[in-house]
């Protein structure tokens, strides 16, 4: 069983957490997320031009790059994480150019070697899958696709073709960390997606509080939280691990217990 399958096979919804690599003490922060109860970790690859991100993650990208974070640093962080945490799925999330600049085969091989389970590339839609997808799949790394409120029924099969790991439902047409979608629209969307795929469905964008997360967890297989963690790192700098762990725990408790409360 893959790490993703194991993480989503637990009899409770999963907490998927995002932080940006190289922003703050990343190794300590990753450990704090795991200790706090995160089920899946997304590690953002910083990019100079993060077009799909809101102010919080944009700023994290710039902080990381200003410290000189390189792609080699990110793979070193990932490989060290895999040594310390053999079971927690690790996803690299970012933009096409840093992922493909040395060739997709190179990137896929580095992912496999570092123990990265999946990749989310924001700006490679299914139409451009050849850019990255075949290399990842050949290397045994899952390509995690995004579905959005604008993904209609006609497109959905293309989005799912070649997708692995889990399906990430971007619940608002917008950028990361700002407005939250209406609960009813999320329920409808997840129900629609579940009829089209056997992949677990995780819901993200705009989820910042345990209450929001718990509400979504009642209907989804996972809840993704990013900007709220990034804000904690922005506030606490290199000493963010303790507050990150505490916040992770409140989210994990809310999400993990959501379906029991519902029943």
């Amino acid at each position: 069983m893959t790490r993703f399958a194991a993480a989503f096979a637990k009899p409770r919804p999963a907490l998927v957490t995002f932080i940006t690599a190289g922003d703050g003490d990343t190794a300590a922060n990753l450990d704090a997320l795991v200790a706090g109860g995160a089920d899946v970790i997304e590690l953002g690859m910083p990019f100079t031009d993060p077009m799909a991100d809101g102010p919080a993650i944009q700023a994290a990208n710039l902080r990381s790059l200003a410290k000189g974070t390189t792609t080699a640093d990110i793979f070193a962080i990932a490989a060290a994480f895999r040594q310390r945490h053999p079971d927690t799925p690790l996803v690299l999330m970012g933009y096409a150019n840093p992922m493909t600049i040395r060739g997709a085969d190179w990137f896929a091989a580095e992912c496999a070697q570092a123990g990265v389970d999946g990749v989310i590339c924001v700006d490679i839609p299914s139409e451009e899958d050849a850019e990255l997808g075949p290399s990842l799949r050949a290397a045994g790394v899952d390509l995690i696709r995004l579905a959005t409120p604008t993904t209609d029924a006609a497109r959905l099969p293309d989005v799912l073709n070649g997708a692995g790991g889990f399906l990430y439902y971007v619940s608002v047409a917008g950028i990361t960390g700002l407005q939250q979608a209406a609960q009813a629209s999320i329920e409808d969307a997840v129900a629609r997606l579940k009829t089209a795929t056997d992949l677990p469905v995780a819901v993200g964008f705009g989820v910042r509080t345990p209450d929001q997360a718990a509400a979504i967890a009642k209907v989804a297989d996972g809840v993704v939280v990013g900007s709220a963690f990034v804000d904690i790192i922005a506030e606490h700098g290199d000493a963010a691990a303790a507050p990150l762990e505490a916040f992770t725990r409140t989210l994990a408790d809310a999400i993990h217990g959501a379906k029991e409360i519902a029943e």
């Binding site: 700006d123 490679i124 839609p125 299914s126 139409e127 850019e131 604008t150 993904t151």
Partner: peptide, 20 residues
């Protein structure tokens, strides 16, 4: 028909924009 001029061009956008 996929927007490529040789190896260049294409549609490298977020899924939200793709239908648009």
């Amino acid at each position: 028909d996929r927007g490529h001029f040789g190896a260049f061009g294409g549609r490298y956008v977020a899924e939200t924009l793709m239908p648009l």
